[in-house]
């Protein structure tokens, strides 16, 4: 489905998407956090692209692990070690493969989620990245039998619903947790950046793999 060179293309697209949404993510973060999510994420992903652009001859695991290590040392906010851990775990799961299939995609998402949960000591319903990522993974598994195109479409829908859900819950983790009830009504920036990444991956696969 996706080889090393294509994985680099997808990560490059994620960088573009985050850069386009830099002000939007920062604006969401200024309502309930420290107003730096867009800036931090765009710094991080720009560094990722600089670091992996010459890695097309490497395996997918090395590319994902390099992306994770780069995020850890360049993002600055909590999303650095959280997304960094997610990409490093994803890299461990796919290992030395130079081509990823649909099941690999599910496995790497599951590993990423597990990494974020452990690193952040967080679970669903606390207004974090997990609120869009976990429902997306449940959706892809649930609709897998309907075919790849249908399942991928569900990923984006579920992640989007997860983002909407964060408006209805109180933040229990991160800077927003200091606001308590006052975080209600606001959309979580981390859940949003995760949705944007998932949508970018799905859009790329749909467009380039004729789904």
């Amino acid at each position: 489905m996706v080889n090393s060179q294509e994985l680099i293309q997808i990560l490059t697209k994620i960088n573009e998407k985050i850069a386009e949404n830099k002000d939007y993510l920062t604006q969401l973060d200024s309502a309930i956090g420290d107003a730096d999510h867009g800036i931090n994420m765009s710094k991080g992903f720009k560094a990722v692209v600089d670091r992996i652009s010459q890695m097309k001859d490497k395996d997918c695991g090395s590319i994902l692990k390099t992306a994770g290590m780069t995020l850890v040392s360049t993002v600055g906010g909590a999303s650095g070690p959280l997304y960094g851990t997610a990409f490093m775990r994803a890299g461990q799961v796919v290992g030395s493969k130079t081509e990823l299939n649909f099941d690999d995609f599910i496995s790497l998402l599951e590993a990423a989620l597990e990494g974020i949960k452990l690193r952040g000591k967080a679970q669903r319903g606390e207004k974090t990245i997990i609120d869009s990522l976990e429902p997306a993974i449940e959706a892809i598994k649930k609709h897998k039998e309907e075919g790849e195109a249908a399942a991928l479409k569900r990923v984006v829908e579920a992640a989007k619903e997860g983002v909407e859900y964060t408006k209805k819950i109180v933040a229990r983790k991160g800077r927003a947790s200091y606001l308590g009830e006052r975080s209600l009504g606001h959309q979580d920036p981390g859940a949003t950046s995760c949705y944007l990444m998932l949508k970018t991956v799905v859009d790329w696969i749909t467009e380039n793999k004729g789904l």
Binding site: I39, N40, V72, S73, T74, G77, G80
Partner: peptide
């Protein structure tokens, strides 16, 4: 910037 860096 304000922030932390695990590598540092």
């Amino acid at each position: 910037r304000l922030g932390t860096d695990a590598q540092m």
